[in-house]
Design a protein around this nucleic acid. Structure first.
Lengths: 157, 157
DNA sequence: GAGGGCTTGATATACTATAACAGTTCATAT
DNA sequence: ATATGAACTGTTATAGTATATCAAGCCCTC
């Protein structure tokens, strides 16, 4: 499976793989993967894009699954805590994680043209951790978000 | 001068150096470094902490320099555009830049205990750029924010 | 001194997120 | 089986962050 989610790919695999991994992880750890939580995860999985909480809420509301902000924020909190989604700070938006289950400090590429968001492979954050450590700073979490143009959008500019 | 702004240091140098550099840069480039803009910059320089736009606005309002959000957001926009301040996405807050004038992709360390924010030296972001490039992604800007404990706060825990 | 561009003032509103409390569900211990 | 408690959901209200828009003033320059 290619790591280049910016290119076209069999997206149904992304969805089913991630959903299966999440289901498995929840079962193993006795986590309650409730309908709202599953649905929010599905919505986020449906595209490699970051979605705002209120965009998600709108969809939920149409489906009769809760129409107030806390509903979606609580689901996102659950999904984030257990590593199924990540927040893109720069966009105040959320994306489904492509490697759920594994604990990691993700790094993202955000295309400013097509708004796709893809997680980098291999968490290339060691340079930063090293630099921080050399100043005596103890890193607990890292936000890395690179904004620019994805391969496809470079061609069309 | 130590690069360890987490430690105690002669802070008046930070302020005057940065302000002088900003004044110089504005003069050279015919930028209008108006009173509101200068004052917002000063406020942010006064501590190595990130401040919310509304915190700054409160101070401005007390001093009679404008009491509506657009005033401070416009000043922050100007200061950000010209590299005098940076936004900390994770905190929705702003810090004065410690190396104004030089164009750079900053990387920050945020202490979750004392809330100080310090810019890393040397922009340790090449690993990320390399990783992105290897996927064909063209990086235009990078957000790097490491949250954790500064040297001082590690001792007191 | 008229025009144009930029800055500020002011009002209104949009967008993002959380606090707090009530009601429900469900697993577990008694 | 049922009482208990923990976690999830529903709902109301509100806090916090950011921008659109239009009017008015300033300054440069032609």
């Amino acid at each position: 499976m290619p790591s280049h989610e910016f290119q076209s790919h069999d997206h149904s695999h992304c969805v089913s793989d991630a959903m299966n991994a999440a289901l498995l992880h929840c079962e193993k750890n006795s986590l309650k993967f409730t309908p709202v939580r599953q649905r929010v995860f599905e919505i986020l999985l449906s595209e490699h894009k970051a979605m705002g909480a209120y965009d998600i809420l709108e969809i939920l509301a149409k489906e009769g699954m809760g129409s107030q902000p806390p509903v979606v924020y609580r689901a996102l909190d659950f999904l984030g805590t257990h590593g199924f989604v990540h927040k893109i700070e720069k966009l105040n938006a959320f994306v489904a994680c492509e490697h759920p289950g594994s604990d990691h400090d993700p790094a993202f590429m955000i295309c400013r043209s097509c708004t796709k968001v893809v997680e980098m492979e291999g968490s290339p954050n060691s340079e930063i951790s090293t630099a921080a450590k050399s100043m005596g700073f103890e890193v607990e979490a890292i936000v890395v978000e690179a904004e620019g143009l994805c391969p496809t959008c470079q061609d069309t500019e």
